[in-house]
């Protein structure tokens, strides 16, 4: 499968701050790729390097087969961008901005423009200063979606949209994927990521900490187990892949790496199980684990992954 974006070992500093510290990112052509990480992790910096707005200090960056810093004009003809913080010219109407950005990109489909305005319920006659945050976001979304760019780079595109409009956005992206467009979607909304993304990359502190399909990532997380046993659970805490053991008489609660479940269940069965509740990891837990600034968690995860 061809790759639309391939980044490896990307570094970028602003003065003394290292915004990116060896970031890797691979987006395959035709996929919707979720780009996740806590605030300040370096998502927007990466996107701005991909757009040729910032110059990388070190590392390899390939975008649609070109160099984003050198081949600005040719690459920008083939992509559309929605910034996370959309500001409009106060005295231009939304419709004017949509048309202007479309023309600069080399034309947009008027039928699709009208259809998108309708679906997003956006009034194109209002001036930039009169739009709310959500409506400004819609202006940028319509401008990007109405173009026939092969790559969409979306930086938290739904911030400020109401749930109804978020659903419209999801429908649009699903349609885009069907037509074979590639989407890089930076987002904090986990339900959105779960519904739309084929693969995700999670970054923290300017590095990629995890990358893969959601199923693959789930596999790396922990199942929480709560059991009532026939006797005290001796030696449970020393098993590999077992975390946070709390014993209260014959009751035990713990977190188990998915790959270590077999051994733990066998151990519990030897003691004798009266009742057992096991909960699969939620997406939130998956992300929170990666977002939390706790090096131990990360080391454990990496150990299991190997």
């Amino acid at each position: 499968m061809a790759t639309a974006i391939s980044v490896s070992g990307l570094h970028k500093s602003f003065g003394r701050t290292h915004a990116l510290d060896g970031l890797d990112l691979t987006v395959n052509t035709g996929e919707v790729h979720g780009f996740l990480g806590p605030n300040g992790a370096g998502k927007s910096t990466t996107i701005r390097i991909l757009l040729g707005l910032l110059r990388a200090d070190a590392g390899q960056v390939q975008l649609l087969g070109g160099d984003p810093w050198r081949d600005v004009t040719t690459l920008h003809r083939r992509l559309a961008y929605v910034p996370g913080d959309v500001t409009l010219w106060p005295n231009l109407t939304g419709g004017e901005v949509i048309d202007l950005l479309g023309r600069l990109r080399g034309g947009l489909n008027p039928r699709r423009r009208a259809e998108l305005l309708d679906r997003f319920e956006l009034d194109p006659r209002r001036k930039g200063r009169a739009y709310s945050k959500g409506n400004r976001q819609k202006v940028a979304l319509v401008a990007a979606l109405a173009s026939d760019a092969e790559l969409l780079i979306l930086d938290e595109p739904t911030s400020g949209l109401d749930p109804l409009m978020e659903a419209v956005f999801r429908d649009c992206i699903t349609e885009e994927r069907r037509t074979g467009r590639t989407v890089l979607l930076s987002s904090h909304i986990l339900a959105e990521v779960e519904a739309l993304c084929d693969r995700v990359s999670i970054i923290r502190g300017g590095r990629t900490v995890e990358s893969g399909t959601l199923a693959e990532l789930r596999h790396l997380t922990r199942t929480s187990i709560s059991a009532e046993l026939a006797g005290p659970p001796d030696g449970l805490a020393t098993l590999p892949g077992v975390h946070g053991v709390r014993v209260d008489g014959d009751r035990v609660r713990c977190e188990v790496d998915t790959s270590a479940l077999d051994g733990v269940l066998a151990h519990l069965a030897r003691t004798g199980v009266r009742s057992l509740v096991s909960q699969p990891p939620t997406l939130e837990e998956l992300f929170l684990r990666h977002y939390q600034d706790d090096p131990h968690h990360q080391d454990d995860g990496a150990g299991v992954a190997q």
Binding site: R48, L51, G52, L53, V72, T73, T74, H76, R77, L79, A80, Y81, P83, D85, V86, T87, L88, W89, L101, L104, R105, G106, A140, I153
Partner: peptide, 12 residues
């Protein structure tokens, strides 16, 4: 941040 969307188009 109004220059950014413009410079993300083919405008040099």
């Amino acid at each position: 941040l109004r220059a950014e969307p413009l410079l993300a188009t083919p405008v040099r």
